[in-house]
Design a protein around this nucleic acid. Structure first.
Lengths: 270, 270
DNA sequence: GGGGGCGTTCGGGAAAACCGTATGCTGCTT
DNA sequence: AAGCAGCATACGGTTTTCCCGAACGCCCCC
């Protein structure tokens, strides 16, 4: 069963065997045995790897929940505490997570929450691999990856908040260049989408640096609301006219694992 | 896992081994292995058998649901139809079940329903053994077995309807003896509770016979509403004064298996 | 005090899980 | 065109699991 899930996740028997710490031959046999037991072909064998058949996809969606169910029963009987591992972008971990964690600890005192700050693509990779139960990131559009780094399928999401972007500059400061953070940063991806490649820009190491440079009048920057709020109110920064997109704060998890994340989803959506 | 459930159900390793078609040694090893794996004692070993510990009871309540979940996944992936096995007392199968079956087939066209008519004690035994998913019987009181044949614990129930009892006789016919059906019949058990052992009685083979004899003036009988309705309306039988108890039409199932019976419970409670 | 119920331990045999290797396949590279 | 890399899988071996029958210790009751 776990072998099947690993193969479906990795797309290849070899990759699944690596994750499970088994030999490829063993994993292959596990899958064959499961298919024999069910009397249904779960994968289509291609030279590039294993692709799920339609019944295979049906099983995958339910297998996650079944494994979670079994693990939950083990946990309750042994009396161990629950533990969820949440990842988030650094800036979201700092700004958005504390309220969620507080709600979770109030509602579920028996729940331990691990938080890790990772980059956008590491978050999606870890959720896919199962190293994280859920990840909080910034995205746009009707599907995961509107801002880039589209992950392999099998992930589901819910938008729990939104982030408004403001194009800002210091009053009397320079308008150019466009100050952007490092590639891979979600806000940087949004800036790339809004301005294209033709605008003069200077790449900095982080969003905090971009904000600081902007305040010192070294250019303009596209910054999220929670970073610019204070400066806009005090007049340290002024908004420039721009129809900037509204981004979503998006919680991402493996499809079918909702039951294990019920409390997290609830705490997020309040 | 199934070994554990069987032992919990049978109360003894030997009995569980019989049900599973295994040697007692094998079942004993299964339980020991599960306990090792969980790091928790699931049973208290007594000279009379195995009694669940508190974590064991916790597991049992969830194990049923987990096994049902696994079976449900198998069923969905293989595309087989759902199947529930319902047992009922003969008289209830005839009178109360048709409406339920019709509602079930309308709401769940993918559901096959098997119906078996059994005696009161066979119903409870089969549900406990797992040979039936649920049973419909007549009972009274706040727990299963108010009418007798208290089963081993682990069953849960819901009252879905009620049955009123009338003490009836033919107009101008004899009042004595009390005509009762065979021992084991639920209505007979109710009659025993109401009248005690001191009343002159004649034992007949079935409820239908008791009704017929009563109509022919050979005595009085305690009969359920759905049997006497027509005769009372037509005057073929008249009610005698008696504060007869109201019995419950009771659906009984193994505790923890509610998820597998969701649709049945719903069709019953409408 | 012995018989019958119980669960467990023991040794052995069958089955399953897993491994390392070898093989056939495809797509890409040289 | 030949070779190589990546893939899934068939094969033979070893380790672990599963199951059995028999034997043992325990308790209760006759």
């Amino acid at each position: 069963m776990r072998g099947f899930v690993a193969v479906a996740g990795a797309g290849t028997v070899t990759g699944a065997a690596d994750r499970l710490g088994l030999a490829p031959a063993s994993v292959s046999e596990q899958v064959r045995r499961l298919e024999d037991s069910l009397g249904v072909a779960l994968f289509e064998r291609t030279p590039q790897g294993m692709r799920l058949t339609e019944p295979g996809a049906t099983l995958l969606a339910r297998a996650q929940a079944l494994l979670d169910h079994a693990e939950e029963v083990r946990r309750v009987v042994t009396g161990r505490r629950r533990r969820v591992r949440i990842g988030a972008l650094e800036m979201l971990a700092a700004v958005k997570l504390p309220a969620v964690i507080r709600r979770l600890s109030e509602r579920c005192p028996d729940l331990d929450v691990d938080v890790r700050a990772l980059t956008r693509q590491d978050l999606l990779a870890e959720v896919t691999r199962g190293g994280l139960d859920a990840a909080l990131l910034v995205d746009s559009g009707p599907a995961i990856g509107g801002l880039g780094f589209v992950p392999p399928p099998g992930l589901d999401f819910a938008d729990v908040d939104e982030v408004r972007l403001f194009l800002v500059a210091a009053p009397g400061g320079d308008r150019d260049p466009l100050l952007v953070s490092a590639p891979g940063c979600s806000i940087r991806l949004a800036a790339d989408q809004v301005f294209g490649a033709e605008v003069p820009r200077r790449e900095l190491t982080s969003l905090a640096t971009a904000r600081e440079w902007t305040r010192q009048g070294l250019g303009r920057a596209l910054l999220p609301d929670f970073v610019t709020e204070a400066d806009l109110a005090s007049g340290a920064l002024v908004p420039l006219d721009l129809d900037a997109p509204v981004l979503a704060v998006r919680l991402v998890w493996q499809r079918g694992r909702e039951s294990a994340l019920r409390d997290v989803l609830y705490a997020m959506s309040v």
